[in-house]
Design a protein around this nucleic acid. Sequence first.
DNA 1: CCAGACGTTGTT
DNA 2: GTCTGG
DNA 3: CCAGACGTTGTT
DNA 4: GTCTGG
Length: 231
Amino acid sequence: MCGRFVRKEEKVLLESRFNCDTLAGILPAPEYNIAPSQDCPVVTVEGDRRVLGLMRWGLVPAWSDDVKIGYRMINARAETVAEKQSFKTLLKKSRCLVPASGFYEWKKLAGGGKTPYFIRLKGGGTFAFAGLWTVWHAGKDDELHSFTIITTSANELMSPIHDRMPVILHEKDEARWLDPELGKPGDILPLLVPYPSGDMECWEVSPYVNSYKNKGEECIKPVTSGHSRRP
DNA sequence: CCAGACGTTGTT
DNA sequence: GTCTGG
DNA sequence: CCAGACGTTGTT
DNA sequence: GTCTGG
């Protein structure tokens, strides 16, 4: 679940919305169909300031001897993230915000097919997924920064589509999620819950989005004549 | 102590 | 790197 | 997440 | 069917 998302924000908007500076490199343009292995802007804490840096979606743990593991480490389960050895240290020390405008889920059909849905906050505001990040060393000076998105059970809006959904942080909780002083599970696990259904909306979109190569407005256009509706 | 594993999803 | 299992 | 590939030998 | 790649 949560294997594709959307980020329509410009760099300037991201910096103001998340109160951060741009760390290094050129940020990619707004993006409609972000897939695993792509580089995305991610907000982390360095010392006493927030920074926006680029990382690859799909966690490549420091111990891995193969970068390809990242293709399958795109999510971490909230229910077990404090216990799994691959995540517990990161949960304590390496949390991040992943800015987004929405995400996709594919609903399985009885006939064996699948239909993509676009999901976002009501009205389309910018939000942050709860993420974990790490560094992998390919060579002596070769660092790969990567991240994963935490998932939780589906809320009422999502459950007709899928049984899992990404953790979306309430804006007031973003500072807590990033606070390096907070390392105890009791401080931060309560944030990893489904976002309220009433504050979200979703609609069916075209299978055009099935290919991550397809970009643009078409990726979030309702498949039924312009009206958003429940699945 | 060392050796060995370390993840999610969906589908069956 | 860090945790679990033997 | 979905799309797309999925192989070896020998010769150049 | 299953794995890899983006």
